[in-house]
Design a binder for these strands. Structure first.
Lengths: 199, 199
DNA sequence: GTCTATAAAGTGATAGAC
DNA sequence: GTCTATCACTTTATAGAC
């Protein structure tokens, strides 16, 4: 995952892949039938880890939802849940640990291979679905398509910190994302989401 | 540009590059001193085209700004200028024509080479600067850093349609971006920006 | 299941003809 | 200025020893 993410599919040689794993180059052919098989296996790995992580959040959130629906301050609860989601996503996008697999996902977004289906079905679709559920409860009078589009613009605000990382850091005058920077990003996105939901 | 964008720097072979240009492989060495020189020349080309385009918008906008400053409805004019900017950016991001160079820029964002400086100095920085100017006039009481960050979240909302294109299309149930889809994206982003500026 | 060795194809750069 | 031909090297895949 690290080698593919750092060097890209083509630039990553089977030798650097096997070296990083501490095994011989021939092991790739034996275990994964070739470089491409290893690439797909990496995405299966990412998809499963993400599925577990998102699945946990989604389950927790959906169970909390039925309680929130009855509460008198339901909108506040929905908004808080959305805020916790964006906080988590910002944490992930700004953290350097996400770099390898984030690069892989971005590549797949531009020219999807069968690996993209794995990602979307296991976690992206699920995550977008949960967010849409929340936004739809906050703005039930709007049609589904509008709320789905609203979710996309929320996603974009957090995604930028991965996809346009170098440009953002140069624009902000940041050399990397410090704890206080991340805090102000979270606050800004929470405020934006609250405002755009309010309409 | 097309070959590098489609295949990436490493995957693009000098032979496929020269074939696409309808010349011999040896011509790359003669004209650009090698594959890397050609790569940099592509970015010089992109940077110059963009510089011209953004420079025009920026000049027009700055000259209109002094007139707007005196107007009684100045905030409306700033917001409208910002809306025209996001409209244009959305037009570019959703258009398939931008795919080759957008891919190149995304790649550079993740692991910047000297080519990234060309891009930032010639058009990204300029564009972000103009947007920051507008946001700062709309929210003069906020400090510069906050307004710069607000610009980033606006950028993210339009950038998503390039960076997360495949996922968004699957989420929205769109096979590609139709005219009416683009119109609703523009409306959504304009509404979001207005709301988040209002606070 | 892991290794060495090697085959077969592709890579970027470049010398030299025209 | 453009071509062919070729060099030196790297690539992935795989045969065969252990």
């Amino acid at each position: 995952m690290e080698v593919f993410g750092r060097e890209g599919f083509h630039a990553a040689s089977t030798r650097s892949l096997s070296d990083a794993a501490g095994v011989n180059q021939a092991a790739i052919g034996f275990h994964f039938r070739g470089k491409e098989g290893l690439y797909l296996a990496v995405f299966e790995h990412i998809a499963e880890r993400m599925r577990a992580r998102v699945g946990l959040i989604a389950a927790e959130l959906v169970s909390g939802l039925s309680a929130a629906d009855a509460a008198p301050n339901a909108p506040d609860l929905y908004l808080e849940a959305l805020g916790r989601l964006t906080d988590t996503m910002i944490e992930i996008m700004t953290h350097s640990e996400s770099e390898p697999w984030a690069r892989l996902i971005l590549q797949e977004q531009q020219s999807p291979t069968p690996a993209f289906d794995l990602l979307f079905d296991n976690f992206m679709g699920r995550l977008l679905g949960v967010m849409t559920m929340l936004v739809s409860r906050l703005r039930p009078e709007r049609d589904e398509a509008t709320n789905k589009l609203a979710v996309v613009t929320i996603l974009g605000q957090v995604l930028a910190f991965r996809a346009a990382r170098a440009g953002i850091q140069r624009h902000m005058g940041w050399s990397d994302f410090k704890t206080e920077d991340i805090a102000s990003i979270k606050a800004m996105v929470r405020a934006n989401v609250a405002a755009q939901i309010r309409g």
